[in-house]
Computed example of a mutant assay.
Amino acid sequence: MARVEAVACGSLHEAAWLERNLLEADMPPWNRRPGGEETAIYIVVDARPRTAGVRTSHLARFDDVVGFGPYLGGTRARQAISGLHRAFPLSYTRDRLTGAERAIAARRGIGPQARERFAAAVISALDGTDAEPAREALTAARDRAVAALNFELAGRIHEELAALEWVTSVQRVTVEGGGDQDICGWADGVAVTFAIRGGRLNGWDQRECARSAVARASAVTPPEWTGFAQRNAELAAALIRA
């Protein structure tokens, strides 16, 4: 071992995607499983009267619906959908419901008039605008379950909260339809340059150099990546100097 290099990610979800990207890019001899163990999946929000609801999709095709992702982990995506349904039951606003669904919707006072509001709330949670209403609704539901000594239900809701955090956390290293770019950060005599190819961050290079050597690369680094690049340059410098 010559040295240790590390990358500080914005979330566990982002770190999981980065690991997958690196494995797919390098295919190390003893870890050659394209795609890894986790499933890449999308979440679809459908506000159409006959098919309203939130569901998963394995394809990045979103005709007449709103799509989000990719997310790493089918189980987490489905748990997040379960939680979003618990908070904003969009599927109960469809024009055609089963008898059981009509009874549940009636008991909860839900009708087609809530369709746009529920769809907007789910979209706001998934696009990062405002996930707090969903978190508050699930936290309140979990607390009610605990108060009723229904610990199995409380456990399920707790998992839904964790899954919602997973799908709404920072994740920039894998972007559907993304392009190619290099991002660069410099700190204490160390430059780190990350390579994004096809929307996937799948490699980096770090070297000791003067700031002037990477001034141009740093200047063209997109503003949304500046903090990421700077943070990781500082980490690289700290590890080299340790």
Rank of each mutant, 00 (worst) to 15 (best):
A2E: 15
R3S: 07
R3V: 09
V4H: 04
E5L: 11
A6E: 15
V7C: 06
V7W: 10
A8G: 11
A8E: 13
A15L: 09
A15Q: 09
W17I: 13
N21P: 11
L22F: 13
E24H: 07
R32M: 14
R33K: 15
R33Q: 15
G36H: 06
E37N: 12
E37G: 12
A40Q: 04
A40K: 03
I43M: 07
V44G: 08
V45W: 08
V45H: 09
A47P: 03
A47H: 05
P49G: 11
T51R: 07
T51H: 04
A52R: 00
L59C: 10
L59Y: 13
F62R: 03
D64L: 11
D64E: 14
T75P: 12
T75Y: 15
R78Q: 11
Q79G: 05
A80R: 14
A80T: 09
I81C: 06
S82C: 11
G83C: 09
R86A: 13
A87H: 07
P89Q: 04
S91P: 13
T93L: 01
D95P: 05
R96L: 06
R102D: 00
A103H: 08
A105Q: 05
A106E: 10
A106I: 04
G109S: 02
P112C: 08
E116F: 06
E116H: 06
F118Q: 04
V122D: 06
I123F: 00
I123Y: 02
A125D: 03
L126G: 01
D127Q: 01
T129F: 04
E136P: 09
L138F: 05
L138E: 06
A140D: 12
R144F: 05
R144A: 13
V146G: 08
V146W: 12
V146R: 15
L153N: 01
L153R: 08
A154S: 08
A154P: 02
E160C: 12
L161V: 05
A162S: 14
W166Y: 09
W166N: 03
V167E: 08
S169N: 09
V170H: 10
R172L: 05
V173S: 01
T174N: 02
V175L: 04
V175P: 01
G179D: 03
G179T: 06
Q181W: 00
I183L: 10
W186Q: 09
A187C: 08
A187S: 10
A187D: 07
G189K: 00
G189T: 03
V190Y: 01
V190G: 05
V192L: 00
V192D: 01
T193M: 07
I196V: 06
R197C: 02
G199F: 00
W204M: 04
D205L: 12
D205F: 15
R207D: 01
E208V: 13
C209G: 05
C209L: 00
A210E: 12
S212I: 15
A215F: 07
A217K: 03
S218A: 15
A219W: 03
V220N: 12
E224D: 13
E224V: 14
N232I: 11
A236C: 04
A237K: 06
R241W: 02
